[in-house]
């Protein structure tokens, strides 16, 4: 009895997530795409409910593997007003020629092919803390959504009230 199913449509399947040492690294494989190895891929962070998109060109690896590392500071919203409440970044893999198009053209990064349902409560990742230039402390944590897709939350540090960062 195999626990791995086949991809019906192209998808970016997470193998490992490494939230450590001030970065979040995501390793995975593109499934169901006709020619993943000769496509130039970008990792796109899409700020949920905003227009903000951050794009990271990925090394063209062998076969379908992708390996992306993002420093924690990048998950802090550029607009200081947006830091007072939690924000969520949804992760996508985009072929280079579609990088300026919308999320409908990209592959949502997630973990769909194994047999574990309800990853949100099972595959839980550590939180890391980052301090912005203005002294605000924020908590950054990758998480699986209820649809088993990978997102990253950036929220005010629980022990520091918003707008009153300690010097």
């Amino acid at each position: 009895m195999s626990v791995q199913s086949r991809a019906e449509t192209p998808l970016a399947e997470v193998a490992e997530v490494w939230p450590r040492d001030g970065h979040i690294r995501v390793v995975g494989d593109v499934h169901g795409h006709p020619d993943p190895a000769s496509t130039r891929w970008l990792l796109v962070l899409a700020l949920r409910d905003h227009d903000t998109r951050l794009r990271y060109p990925l090394e063209t690896g062998s076969a379908a593997r992708f390996d992306a590392t993002v420093p924690l500071a990048d998950f802090v919203p550029a607009d200081p007003a947006a830091r007072a409440a939690e924000v969520k970044w949804d992760l996508y893999l985009a072929p280079e020629d579609t990088a300026d198009l919308g999320t409908a053209h990209w592959l949502r990064v997630g973990r769909q092919l194994d047999d574990i349902r309800g990853k949100k409560k099972i595959m839980v990742f550590p939180v890391q803390y980052v301090r912005t230039d203005d002294g605000t402390a924020l908590a950054v944590q990758p998480f699986y959504t209820i649809k088993d897709n990978l997102s990253v939350e950036c929220a005010p540090h629980p022990s520091e009230s918003s707008g009153q960062a300690t010097p």
Binding site: V17, W18, I116, K121, V124
Partner: peptide, 11 residues
């Protein structure tokens, strides 16, 4: 121990 990719508390 950085085992969040390998050890799962399944409930």
């Amino acid at each position: 121990h950085h085992l969040y990719n390998h050890v799962f508390l399944m409930g």
